[in-house]
Amino acid sequence: MTEQPEVESIWPVQDQIAAYLRDGILNGDFQPGEPLPSSRKLTERFGAAAQTIKNAMGILEKEGLIYTRRGAGIYAREHRQRTMTPAEYKTPPTDGGKYQWIAAAERKGLAGRSELLEVEEVVPPHLVREAFGLGEGATAILRRQVMFLNDEPCELVEVYFPLDLGQGTPIAERRRIKGGAGRVLAEAGLPPLRCVDKVAARWPTPHQQQALKMPTKLPVLRQFRVTYSTGDRPIQAEFMIKAGHLYELEYEF
Rank of each mutant, 00 (worst) to 15 (best):
R202D: 11
K213Y: 03
K198W: 12
V196A: 05
T205M: 08
Q210E: 15
P215R: 14
Q210N: 11
A188E: 02
W203H: 12
T227I: 02
P192Q: 10
G189R: 00
P191D: 01
T216Y: 05
V196G: 00
G189D: 00
D197P: 07
K213N: 09
V196S: 01
T205Y: 03
W203V: 06
Q223I: 10
R175C: 14
P204Y: 03
K217G: 10
D197R: 09
P206F: 00
L218K: 13
I177A: 04
L221S: 12
I177H: 04
V226P: 06
K217Y: 05
R174C: 13
R183D: 03
E173S: 06
Q208P: 03
L165T: 02
K217H: 12
V220W: 10
K213H: 11
A200L: 15
L218P: 07
P206L: 05
P191I: 01
A201P: 06
R222Q: 09
A181V: 11
V196E: 08
R183W: 02
V196L: 07
M214K: 09
Q208F: 00
T205L: 09
A188Q: 05
R225P: 03
K217S: 13
G166D: 14
G180F: 11
Q210D: 12
R194P: 00
Q210F: 06
V196R: 10
L221D: 11
R174M: 15
L185K: 05
I177Q: 09
T205F: 01
P219Y: 05
W203I: 08
P206N: 04
G182F: 04
Q210P: 02
A186P: 00
L165H: 04
Q209E: 12
G189P: 00
V199H: 05
A181Q: 15
L193Q: 10
L221T: 10
K217A: 13
L190S: 01
E173P: 07
W203S: 13
R175P: 13
Q209F: 02
G182Y: 05
G182K: 07
I171Q: 08
F224I: 14
R202Q: 15
L218N: 15
F224Q: 15
F224V: 14
A188H: 01
W203Q: 15
A201W: 12
P206T: 03
Q167K: 15
R183C: 04
L185P: 01
G189E: 00
K217W: 08
R175M: 15
W203L: 14
R174I: 11
L193E: 05
T216N: 11
Q210L: 09
C195R: 11
R183P: 02
M214I: 14
A211T: 04
Q209D: 05
G166P: 11
E173T: 09
L221E: 12
M214Y: 03
K213L: 11
T227Y: 01
R175W: 11
P219E: 09
D197L: 08
Q209T: 03
E173W: 00
F224K: 12
Y228E: 07
Q223Y: 09
L221H: 13
L165D: 06
K217F: 06
M214H: 07
R176T: 14
D197Q: 06
V199D: 08
L212S: 04
G189C: 02
A211E: 13
V220H: 09
A200D: 15
T205R: 12
T205H: 06
V226Y: 04
